[in-house]
Write a protein that binds this DNA or RNA. Sequence first.
DNA 1: AATTTGACCAACCGCCTTGCT
DNA 2: AAGCAAGGCGGTTGGTCAAAT
Length: 254
Amino acid sequence: MSKASRGPRQAVRRGPWSTEEDAKLMNHVAKHGVGRWGDIPRLAGIERGGKSCRLRWLNYLRPDLKRAALSQEEEDLIIRLHSIIGNSWSLIAACLPGRTDNGVKNFWNASIKHKLRRRGIDPDTHEPVADDNGSRNGDVLPSHLAAGGDPCSHGALPLPDSISRYADTDPLQLQHGVALVQPVVSSSSTVGSNPSSSGCDAGEQWNNRADSGSRLFELTESSITTTTTTTTESATTNHLPSPVQAVGAAPRVP
DNA sequence: AATTTGACCAACCGCCTTGCT
DNA sequence: AAGCAAGGCGGTTGGTCAAAT
C-alpha cells in the first residue's frame, strides 16, 4: 500500500446498506475488482469505511455466495470441523463452498450450539455435559458425529485431509483446537487481497476465494506435535481443489 | 390480538498480522 | 527497527421475522 495514495477520510454511514450503495459497490468491483478496500469508498462514491465495504462484499454481494439454508451435511461437517479446530470460522467456511465465515459463525451460535446443548453436549468441548449429580446428561452426538466416527457416513461431507488426519486425536486434546491450528503464512500475503494491486481480475480472484471452496489451508505439523516446523500438508480434497493459502491473523489463543 | 421466544442474519468492534515507508 | 495503515479474523450486538403461548 502506498501512504501517498491514502486520501482524506470520508464521513461514513453506518447501519444497513441501501440498494444504491450495494449497486455502487457491485459496479466498482465489476470494473476494478477487489482489493485496496480503503480506496473503494472514495472511488465508488460510497460513504462507508473500507472495512465495511469489504465485509458487505464478502458476506453479501459476492456472486458465488450460497443463500440457501445449510444442509444437514453441511451442518454435520461444521460440527465435526469445530470439534477439531475450534472457532476458526474462516477455516471451517473454507470447507463449505459458497459459505462465509460470518455465516458459519452465525449458524453455529444461533442454531448448532442450541441443538448440541439440547442433546446434552457442550458445544465448546463437544463432550457430554455432566449434570449436578456428575452424571452424563442427555444423548451424545449422533454416531456419525461422535468422536472417532466417520464423518463421511450418513452422507456427511468428508473432511479435508489436513483436518481429518487429526480427527482421531483425543477430542480432549483438541477441544481448544483453535490453538492447534496455525495457518501457514506465505509471502503472497492475505487471501482476497490483490497481490499485484493493479489489473486485478475480480472474477479470477474470487474464484480463488475461501468461500468458493478453493482456499487451501494447512495445519502445521508443529501445531499438533512439538517443535517440528518443516512439514506441512496441503489440503487437496474436493472441497479444496486449488492451492490458495488461508492466511491472515493467526488464531488467537484465549 | 398481543406478547414472548427462538432462529436467523447483518453489521460493527477490537485485536492481530502484514507490508510499506 | 519503528511506526503506520490496510486487511483479515473472531466476538458480539442488534434487528427482523415467524412460531408459540
